[in-house]
């Protein structure tokens, strides 16, 4: 059931080529504007912060529409055919993959247009994976709320930014270690532990709270 839901999402996404293409152009545009504004004069902390700000804004913009298309007849169909838990698990899994893809694309173009400051790449990729999971869990629920609340775009950012802050701050801290090229022995594993705990917490909360948004 969950697999078929994810398959449906993927089909919808790739049938409409404007969405996936739009995402890539959006990312390139944002990074290019930043590159022109900074003109390559970025030190490591700024590089790190700018990367996560771009990722944050892109993921909020992209996932805002994740539930927006599930209105009207589509919502009724979902309501009759799936259980809310299946639905949210599928959404989180799909968004997780999508966010991961998105953050890798962002990193690629960011490294290409600005520069690659990361010295411990494997740690950085672990951070990317964990951050994508957390973003997917939080933004799926926020998108579900925003789609019920008249569904305007501003409400999505207003709701998401404050609740994303704990995640983003922990992510930036570990990512800073990756950028500085700290060796594995000296990496602060307590922060990675916190990031994993935050992910488990947000996924559990989304899982528990989503059924209440299900019925209209």
């Amino acid at each position: 059931m969950i697999a078929s839901l994810i398959k449906k999402e993927l089909l919808l996404e790739f049938r409409q080529k404007s969405t996936i293409g739009g995402v890539i152009v959006y990312v390139i545009g944002t990074i290019f504007v930043s590159a022109l504004c900074f003109k390559g004069k970025l030190d490591k902390p700024t590089w790190n912060a700018l990367f996560w700000v771009i990722t944050l804004f892109t993921s909020v913009t992209i996932s805002g529409k994740s539930f927006l298309k599930e209105t009207g007849g589509q919502a009724l169909f979902n309501f009759l055919h799936y259980s809310p838990t299946q639905f949210i698990v599928a959404k989180i899994l799909y968004n997780m993959v999508f966010m991961l893809l998105l953050s890798f694309i962002t990193f690629f173009f960011y490294a290409f247009f600005i520069k690659n400051e990361v010295e411990n790449l494997s740690l950085f990729f672990i951070v990317l994976i964990l951050a994508s999971t957390g973003l997917a869990a939080i933004l799926s629920l926020m998108s579900a709320i925003a789609s019920k609340a008249s569904g305007n775009f501003a409400i999505m950012s207003i709701l998401s930014f404050p609740v994303l802050m704990p995640l983003i701050l922990v992510v930036i801290r570990i990512s800073k270690q990756a950028v500085d090229g700290i060796e594995w022995a000296a990496v602060g594993f307590s922060f990675i532990g916190i990031l994993v705990a935050l992910n488990v917490l947000t996924i559990t909360l989304s899982f528990l709270l989503f059924p209440y948004l299900w019925r209209d």
Partner: peptide, 25 residues
Amino acid sequence: LRFSVDDELKRARISAVYNVFAFVM
């Protein structure tokens, strides 16, 4: 969020969900 939903029952449920999530965060 509360101001942007007109229907009372819907507002109650949506804002309660956000409140629980936001309190934990």
